[in-house]
Write a protein that binds this DNA or RNA. Structure first.
Lengths: 203, 203
DNA sequence: GTCTATAATTCGATAGAC
DNA sequence: GTCTATCGAATTATAGAC
């Protein structure tokens, strides 16, 4: 029993260390962005040595990519792209579309604290061109198709940019800048307040 | 003529150096944000020694504050706070309010390339708490009162957060993240596209 | 697999000559 | 007023002992 299968769910020691690093990295990148996050701080949060981060992820950029993929992919699989998990919009009546999209988007931001892929990505995208390109790719590859499925491609093309502006504007003021007038609202108030504007775009 | 009044508009040599540093700093902060901007890079852009930056502005934070104030105050005076220059909203008919606010906001972003105070501020505010606090102060001190003047304080309180989300969402997707669906629009299309959503909020 | 030690840079900031 | 020289701290990244 020298090289032991660890008691917890068959994970090896290395896999647990790797997971601890990723969790710490996700929190740091989400809270401080790419530049201000240091490998040393991540290592300290994870309770291991900074050199371990390099061993597992090669470089700071490699750690960022891994943190993004881990936050996005969840525990299910190993996809390396963020999954917005936009649901079954095709069954939603037109007059409930705005509320449905808003509710789903807010859930993605406030639901599981460990699932902060969007926060990680958006916080860094403002000063990191690579992260910004990723935001563009996510919305082009997921948000637009989801809209096109219910509105048709031509109407989706006309309003996709508007929808992205609305949703990211909400995220920016509520989660990144923490503007009091926006953070003061609870979830139901938030949906009710933003639905008319989004409906004006989707109609 | 040893200590010469320089030929150009009576400015002393030091004043011209100071102005060159400020211009370089503004461009760097606007393009890269606070953390990625280095004093050395600003000095190189301005064609002077890095120590001159320290001499004139004391610290990196001092340089940032000065760049913000210079971009905001323009050549007119010496105010040290950003001026959104929200105009005469009280004379605007209610059904043209959305277009007026949008047009003014877009002009502030695209008008004078040297007047990039909002870009400087927003780019840094996402990862710098001090800059974020400044964004909150600007909107609380200028955007909200301007709205209150036309809508009354109670209606302004209800929609001020929404308006900020809309406008900053536009700025984020167009100028910072450069989402193609948003950057593709020219100025008139932009106003026409965003006006319905803003009107839904202001109505 | 984990850590110690350190290399190699880069940064903000200071002291002082001219 | 401008620059040279440098300090001290922080960073990413590497080499190697255990």
């Amino acid at each position: 029993m020298i090289r032991s299968e660890q008691g917890e769910s068959g994970r090896t020691r290395g896999e647990r260390t790797r997971a601890a690093i990723l969790r710490a990295a996700r929190d740091r990148f989400a809270a401080q962005g790419y530049e201000r996050t240091t490998i040393r701080a991540v290592a300290a949060d994870a309770g291991i040595d900074p050199s371990m981060v390099m061993r597992y992820f090669g470089s700071k950029q490699g750690l960022f990519d891994a943190a993004l993929a881990a936050a996005a992919g969840g525990e299910g699989g190993g996809e390396d792209e963020i999954d917005l998990r936009i649901p079954d919009l095709s069954g939603v009546p037109a007059d409930r579309l705005a509320e449905t999209v808003l509710g789903h988007f807010i859930d993605r931001w406030e639901g599981d604290p460990a699932d902060d892929a969007l926060l990680v990505l958006l916080r860094s995208a403002v000063t990191n061109e690579q992260a910004a390109a990723r935001v563009r790719a996510v919305f082009a590859g997921q948000a637009f198709p989801a809209l096109a499925a219910v509105l048709g491609p031509e109407r989706a093309a006309a309003c996709a940019g508007l929808v992205v502006s609305q949703l990211l504007g909400l995220a920016l003021t509520r989660y990144l800048l923490r503007v009091p007038a926006v953070t003061a609202l609870d979830r139901p108030s938030l949906v009710a307040a933003y639905a008319p504007a989004l409906r004006a775009v989707l109609a």
